[in-house]
Simulated assay, not measured.
Amino acid sequence: MKYEAIVFDFDGVLAESVSIKGDAFVKLYEDETPEIQDKVLRYHNENGGVTRYDKIRYYETELCARVCTEERVQELAQKFSDIVEQLVVQSAWVNGAKEMLEALKEKDTPLYVASATPQAELERIITARGMEYYFKGIFGAPTKKDQHIRSISAKNGYDLSAMLMVGDAITDYNAAKAAGTDFLGRLIDPNQNPFPEGTKTIPDMSGFMDALV
């Protein structure tokens, strides 16, 4: 199918950066018990697409059982950014992602990024990686992904049913379904499929163009 526009998540779809962020969350809680650190990492891995702010609120209130002020959330989020930003810039491409973007660019397919990474940080990362050339728009937090998809559709006249969201997390799938777009999942671990049965998935981006057929 020829889509009017394609929207990509970033971490785990274009860059192999999911584990970098998991390690960074664990480092934020290095003074806590190993049990809490394990739960921090598990929650991160099971909740891709959730913003760092929401994850920190969960860690503080549910795992560490303490009052969590907005000041505390912002402090930890800044520490997290300080740890991860350059590492994400330097992270490897997901296999086939660069070639996929080149092929889609040649076909003049409008491409977008919708990520849970804060807007300014996302723009810096994509620019530092030399990727801004591929995208018509780059959209990050705090706006939710389904809102970004609807906004992209409304501003450009795309039919939502003729758009595709590509993601690696159930939150990406839910955003696509909420907005009314098609979805293609990147399955990082074949033994841990977060998507409903029957969801179309690929192991990396090397098979993306074939998956569109």
Rank of each mutant, 00 (worst) to 15 (best):
T171D: 12
V13H: 07
P110R: 00
F80K: 05
V40R: 01
N47F: 01
I56P: 07
R72K: 15
G198Q: 14
D31K: 14
S115E: 01
Q147R: 07
E102G: 00
E35A: 11
F80T: 04
K107E: 12
E132A: 14
D23W: 01
K107P: 08
A175G: 03
D31G: 04
G130T: 09
A211T: 05
Y158C: 02
K105A: 15
M205I: 08
A211N: 04
M163W: 02
R42P: 06
P203G: 15
A178E: 12
D146E: 11
I20S: 07
K144W: 04
S161K: 13
V213E: 13
D108A: 15
T171A: 15
R66P: 10
T51P: 14
L41W: 11
T61R: 15
V26I: 10
A24H: 10
A77S: 13
E60K: 09
K144G: 00
T181N: 03
Y59N: 14
T69M: 07
T199H: 06
I126A: 06
L212I: 09
V67D: 13
G180S: 05
Q78N: 12
Y29R: 06
A176M: 08
M165N: 03
T143G: 00
A116Q: 05
G167F: 10
A211P: 08
I170Y: 10
Q74M: 15
